[in-house]
């Protein structure tokens, strides 16, 4: 049986009455704290690169790379998903979370082999981020280039 539009609207309302709301304040605070702390660690790494004489701009990419490695390692050790349960987007939005989203499917896909498993699955979650990042950046940069010049 398939509920008609009225019945399913009715049922959705009943469901809304019964379902707990996510603890938004707690989640947002946790995301703020963990996200902020990850950035503080990143700032320390940035500072280390800059103390070697790099400009902040030049140091940004190697800092990101170090954070990617850290996120990948914590995922391999099985710790990052535990952090994420508490932190939500606080651990997903920093680039360490990007690394997590690459390592997690890759780890699991190992059983399906290194080509069809790891190779194909590496970007199952991170893929959309790269695709839309590149597309959005291309559009935004082209627009700016066309309107304002380089």
């Amino acid at each position: 049986m398939r509920a008609d539009a009225a019945a399913s609207r009715d049922y959705a309302g009943r469901l809304r009455r019964h379902q707990p709301r996510p603890p938004i304040l707690r989640n947002v605070l946790a995301a703020f704290l963990v996200g902020g702390l990850i950035c503080v660690v990143g700032q320390a790494v940035l500072g280390w690169f800059m103390s070697g004489g790099m400009t902040p701009k030049d140091a940004a990419a190697p800092t990101a790379a170090v954070m990617v490695i850290a996120g990948a390692l914590l995922t391999g050790l099985g710790l990052y998903d535990e952090l994420a349960r508490f932190a939500g987007m606080g651990s997903a939005l920093p680039i360490t979370g990007f690394a997590n989203s690459i390592v997690a499917p890759a780890l699991e896909a190992k059983r399906e082999g290194y080509v069809l498993g790891v190779g194909a699955q590496l970007f199952t979650i991170a893929g959309p981020v790269i695709v839309y990042g590149v597309l959005a950046a291309l559009a935004a940069a082209a627009l700016r280039y066309g309107l304002v010049g380089p």
């Binding site: 950035c39 660690v41 940004a60 954070m67 920093p94 680039i95 360490t96 990042g133 959005a136």
Partner: peptide
């Protein structure tokens, strides 16, 4: 500093600036 370059929006930023 890292507060803006570590979160993911900076990936979009880096792509645009590079372009």
């Amino acid at each position: 500093g890292a507060g803006a370059t570590i979160p993911l929006p900076s990936f979009g930023h880096a792509l645009v600036q590079g372009a």
